[in-house]
Design a protein around this nucleic acid. Structure first.
Length: 576
RNA sequence: UCCCCGGUUGUGUAAUGGUAGCACAGCAGACUCUGGAUCUGUUUGUGGGGGUUCGAAUCCUCCCUGGGGAACCA
């Protein structure tokens, strides 16, 4: 699973290795803790790669734990989706599938333990009062904000007995939602605001997707997470940078609850150019109908990438290359694209397809004759074999492979020029038909050289251009969906204040071509399979996880462009 | 304001006091029945000042700069 693993240790493995060497850790155990409130995306994949990767490197185990302590947002459907994507990515958690919600009773007892130790108390302050007492930023007389020390809650010094009694009543539903909280008694003057008596439990009469109405109090992340780790014997709790400031609190709960000490280590989350990786923003794209859904092939979700044609190997290769560090970074999406190309180049079988068909007529071709020409399925993999493709006197070629007036360095078809039809014959362009009204070129005319069958030139003459084609009569029709980056700029979030990132949405992120033509073999490509259309790019027969009846199938073929081939010509043309 | 964490070519990431390397991108060339693939070559970097040291990306210090935090979310 760690193909392309670098030979050096990243800073996390380095730290874990030291813990092992010093005997602090015997068997390494990590965990991947998704909250079941959304779909997994490539950013999560990095976390998965780190969590499972570190465990694997030290021959330990990584648990899957659903961090489900907020009943308002979570749902079983997300659990299923997360497990599906995790498996697809190639990860296995065996029987170690856990839920923080299974720990509610233990967590409750640990909270009582803290109360008995005089380290937790029931507070009657409401939400706004808690914020005010905490000492959130306030503007002073010069309108400069500052952070004053917090003030103790008037309920902070309740007796252990009273706290125990009130906490039991909270659980029993004797109080209204939000009327009381259980708080850790730490230090209202602490410079780290999170240490100013954080809330451990809140009252919320919201049915939970797993525990139903059994509980009306729910534990908060800061209290629950370190203890869930402890319950599972997690030795290293790896998370993103934003939790760095939570670490003192994480350690405080471990120390005072006197439980198994897990070590939290933080690393930078993934950012990718020309897309967004935040659940909130992704939801907005779906809600505003900018994309067709969570598994729209433009989405950076695992399901979106899969539908786009990305393979798990390509994604893992990418994750291995970007490295792990504490620097906030913005990875160029071209690296991801490089990884798919490299992966698909090795395994995708080649086909010929024409996206924007232009009729090509071979005037000296024997009328009605059909020949079957041999084509290799994958030049990178001889074992993939060959296939026969029908060839006739009426073909479709790519519209952009013909120019009435060729620009400099253009070596495809133009009047008088020779090109090779891939695997077929060398032809010479003799002219073209033009609609006198619209000025549109309706057909290109040429003659073929019978001595060049298969595409070889017996006289060794140099033919610079080779273009792809499809025999008109035998062609299968399909719909091509050409996908491009979701956003037209590298950093979609960089917008003027008051404007939305949606301003940067790329209107050309999807182009649908309904009249595409392909060689007959395309009719049998199964939904979900990726192929290369020669000279065009990698395409994946559409397959959605949501509605199977929309899948690509014979008679209704749909191919999604995963990524185009490297296009040197486009660069030349751009430079002029 | 306060607290925490960062700054190595265009973008990521190594070098753990001892020759600043790798990948992607870029550029140039070779080869090619995909303007693909492959191969070769190549441009660009330690945020700044001071200090310690024979020697500093690395240690100290000040400054600059970026990110994060101040939810009864995770």
């Amino acid at each position: 699973m760690s193909e392309n693993a670098p030979e050096y240790l990243d800073f996390i493995k380095d730290a874990v290795a030291k813990d092992v060497a010093e005997g602090k850790t015997k068997a390494v155990r990590t965990r991947f803790p998704p909250e079941p409130n959304g779909w997994l995306h490539i950013g999560h994949a990095k976390a998965i790669f780190v969590d499972f990767g570190v465990a694997e490197y030290f021959k330990g185990e990584c648990n899957l734990r659903f961090d489900d302590t907020n009943p308002e947002k979570e749902d079983i459907s997300y659990v299923e989706a997360i497990k599906r994507d995790l498996r697809w990515l190639g990860y296995d958690w065996a029987d170690r599938e856990f839920y923080a919600s299974d720990y509610y009773e233990t967590l409750y007892e640990l909270a009582r333990k803290l109360i008995r130790m005089g380290l937790a108390y029931v507070d009657d302050l409401d939400e706004d009062e808690i914020r005010a007492y905490r000492g959130t930023n306030v503007p002073d007389k010069n309108n400069i904000t500052y952070t004053p020390p917090g003030k103790n809650s008037p309920w902070r010094e309740r007796s252990v007995e009273e706290n125990l009694d009130l906490f039991a009543k909270m659980r029993a539903g004797k109080f209204a939602d939000g009327a009381k909280t259980l708080r850790a008694k730490i230090d209202m003057g602490h410079p780290n605001l999170l240490m100013r008596d954080p809330v451990m439990y809140r009252i919320r009469r919201e049915p939970h997707y797993r525990t139903g109405t059994a509980w009306c109090i729910y534990p908060m992340y800061d209290f629950q997470h370190p203890l869930s780790d402890a319950i599972e014997g997690v030795t290293h709790s790896l998370c993103s940078l934003e939790y760095e400031i939570h670490r003192p609190l994480y350690n405080w709960f471990i120390e005072h609850c006197e439980v198994f000490p897990s070590r939290q280590i933080e690393f930078a989350r993934l950012n990718l150019t020309r897309t967004v990786l935040s659940k909130r923003l992704l939801i907005q794209l779906v809600r505003d109908k900018k994309v067709a859904g969570w598994d729209d092939p433009r989405m950076p979700t695992i399901a979106g990438l899969r539908r786009r044609g990305y393979s798990p190997e390509a994604i893992r290769d990418f994750l291995g290359r970007i490295g792990i560090a504490k620097t906030d970074s913005m990875v160029d999406i071209q690296l991801l694209e490089h990884c798919v190309r490299e992966n698909l180049n090795k395994k995708a079988s080649r086909h010929m397809a024409v996206l924007r068909p232009l009729k090509l007529v071979i005037d000296n071709w024997p009328k009605g004759q059909v020949e079957f020409l041999e084509a290799v399925n994958n030049p990178e993999d001889p074992a993939a074999g060959t296939r026969k493709i029908p060839f006739t006197g009426e073909l479709f070629i790519e519209n952009e492979d013909f120019r009435e007036l060729p620009p400099p360095k253009y070596f495809r078809l133009f009047p008088g020029n020779q090109v090779r039809l891939r695997y077929a014959y060398i032809i010479t362009c003799t002219g073209f038909d033009k609609d006198p009204v619209s000025g549109e070129i309706t057909a290109v005319r040429c003659s073929y050289d019978p001595a060049t069958r298969g595409g070889d030139a017996p006289d060794n003459r140099k033919v610079k251009g080779t273009i792809h084609w499809v025999s008109a009569e035998q062609a299968v029709d399909f719909e091509a969906r050409l996908y491009d980056h979701l956003f037209a700029v590298d950093r979609p979030m960089d917008v003027a204040p008051g404007t939305s990132f949606l301003e940067n949405f790329n209107p050309q992120s999807l182009e649908i071509l309904s009249g595409a033509k392909g060689e007959p073999a395309l009719a049998c490509v199964e939904a979900g399979t990726c192929v290369q259309f020669e000279r065009l790019g990698y395409f994946c027969a559409d397959k959605s996880v949501l509605n199977a009846d929309e899948d690509s199938k014979p008679g209704a073929l749909v191919f999604n462009r995963t990524v185009g081939l490297r296009d040197t010509w486009a660069k030349i043309e751009k430079k002029g």
